[in-house]
């Protein structure tokens, strides 16, 4: 479902050029649960942003569902993001002055769904994460774990086939982290493809497959290159 070929991403400022990804190639199949690990600054978030169509690679080819997304304009990329991709962030990123209900409503609005259909989906998503009773609450009124569950509900409400999670448990204690992980595994069992960046080796092991990014490239686990450290070019 996801196929990246020789992706390069570099950030250029006035004085330095940073190669966040270089010669990065990866394929993820439908239904997989892939965990991504690697040292800080190695390019994990950059990879997720490109996979989620939030950023464009400097060069290389990215096929999502066999479609070359390099040729799409902003509107089409946004529509694809809205329909196929769900995001979960380390910082939850709920909109603080919207209720849980309205937060989950956001992607459905951009989908252009009718009011009744949106309500149905929002209620179902809240139920899935066990927060039906809190629909009217503001994010600040919830614990971190609950907020992350709302963020997951928001990512799920649009029924994406592809869920991208960037350290979803990074800000949570181990109990909460386990609950979120169980939720993600449950979602994956129902068919959603998941790519999750994590620093937690235990969680990483629970995925079908673990890939390690080192210095902007997928490290070859078989050959023990995992010890390489990030470096800025």
């Amino acid at each position: 479902m996801l196929k990246m070929q020789s992706i390069r991403k570099s950030y250029r400022t006035d004085t330095i050029e940073t190669h966040a990804l270089r010669d990065f190639s990866l394929a993820v199949d439908e239904g997989e649960f892939v965990s991504v690990t690697g040292p800080s600054g190695s390019g994990k978030t950059t990879f997720l942003n490109i996979a989620g169509l939030l950023e464009t690679p400097t060069s290389g080819q990215y096929l999502l569902d066999d479609e070359d997304v390099g040729n799409l304009n902003d509107r089409d990329r946004s529509r694809m993001r809205n329909e196929k991709i769900g995001f979960i962030f380390q910082g939850f990123n709920l909109i603080p002055d919207l209720s849980l209900f309205d937060n989950i409503d956001v992607p459905l609005r951009y989908r252009g769904l009718k009011g009744r259909e949106r309500k149905k989906r929002i209620e179902k998503a809240l139920e899935q994460v066990g927060l039906s009773a809190r629909a009217k609450h503001l994010p600040a009124q919830l614990s971190g774990g609950q907020q992350q569950r709302v963020a997951i509900a928001r990512a799920l409400a649009g029924e994406p086939r592809f869920l991208l999670a960037d350290e979803p448990t990074g800000n949570l204690d181990s109990l909460m982290a386990r609950q979120v992980m169980e939720l993600l595994e449950f979602i994956n069992e129902w068919g959603t493809t998941i790519v999750m960046v994590t620093h937690d080796p235990d969680l990483a092991r629970r995925a079908h497959r673990n890939i390690q990014i080192v210095d902007g490239q997928v490290a070859d686990l078989q050959h023990g290159a995992a010890s390489a450290t990030a470096e800025i070019a």
Binding site: G52, R75, S78, N82, F87, N93, L94, I95, Y110, R111
Partner: peptide, 16 residues
């Protein structure tokens, strides 16, 4: 701006 960033991630186009 952070809110706009979240909206973009959830599928809002630059135009919207």
């Amino acid at each position: 701006a952070p809110e706009a960033g979240v909206r973009r991630a959830l599928g809002a186009s630059g135009r919207s």
